[in-house]
Design a protein around this nucleic acid. Sequence first.
DNA 1: AGGTTCAGACTGAATATTCGCTCAGTGTTT
DNA 2: AAACACTGAGCGAATATTCAGTCTGAACCT
Lengths: 185, 185
Amino acid sequence: MDKREKILNAAMELIIRQGLQHTPMSHIADRAGVGMGSVYKRFKNKEDIVNGIYVKIKTEEAAMIFVNYDERNSVPDTFNDIYGRMIDYFLSHPLKFNFISQYAFSPVIEKKTQVQAMSRFHRFDEMYARGLEQGLFKDLAPQHLTYFVFGSVCYWLKCASELQIDVDHKMRNQFLKMAWDSIKK
Amino acid sequence: MDKREKILNAAMELIIRQGLQHTPMSHIADRAGVGMGSVYKRFKNKEDIVNGIYVKIKTEEAAMIFVNYDERNSVPDTFNDIYGRMIDYFLSHPLKFNFISQYAFSPVIEKKTQVQAMSRFHRFDEMYARGLEQGLFKDLAPQHLTYFVFGSVCYWLKCASELQIDVDHKMRNQFLKMAWDSIKK
DNA sequence: AGGTTCAGACTGAATATTCGCTCAGTGTTT
DNA sequence: AAACACTGAGCGAATATTCAGTCTGAACCT
């Protein structure tokens, strides 16, 4: 595997498990099976690694949830498909979900990183713009709808994971209905 | 002002602005106008301060949003009152809002702290339980409803603050409607 | 084929820095 | 004058970062 990838994976695991402060660069290098120098060859510093992990996960997430995206599909179908996939992605990658929850609002994540990550999700805007045109949604900027629903997903999943509730298919659909009901006109 | 308060306030400002790692205890002491010893007299260590800030904000928030709480009021009225106040609280205390967003999912916050903070919000459970009895809400555990709506509020406000959108009364009410629509049967 | 060179990647011990925390000395209250 | 609270310089552990030396393998001789 690519060394950059190895470093990012090693760092993610350690940082999630022990926290940023308790994860020395030397441990990251060890676990990635490379020397310290190789880490600093690829990353400016520790925070640069965190930003790298953030972008990597967000890119993977976007690829996963939009895999089936087709503007010709109806808005409701698209909505269910996208958010259903998002739930599935987070449920099947708990470490990554944890990482995103923890760092989404952290000052460690630079503006530039945030913008870069967001750019992968432009299809949300397309879908919401289309839905608004068709009079399906309440009158709010697409971005607000994006955040509102995303926030619901995150906290709801966090709740489920903390209470160790296993999210079955029925629950998943019930949630999708809640999300839809919240923004539909 | 009480020294403990001074320390908590100073720490909150600095930690929000610079991040936990880049906020030495000495700066906290300086800004609070006290010596290091006084800090360590009151707090076991740095993480203890973070936990202290968390509880302080959550306590204040709970006091604010339930100030008018009365079980004899209708569920919809209670819902609007509580969440309306929550929005107002966060809007008028942006630093505190920031802090909570950043540390809600952080491992620095101990389980004990989380439980202690949550206990101030038991009235949510009461309200949701009552609403469920009356057949107003979708069939989910009260805790799920709490998290779902809270997540919506947080992310939506975060969006507004990042895009520097000023939330007027109309928008506030529109949001309340979204939150209600999401969980109503 | 075997030898030589060498650029660039890699390593990890050594260095430099940062910061959490202590405690001897000072100030304040009763 | 005893009891108590407070201060902040300094200790030392943790760890971020550097860089001198090593390794690798491709290119080029002989």
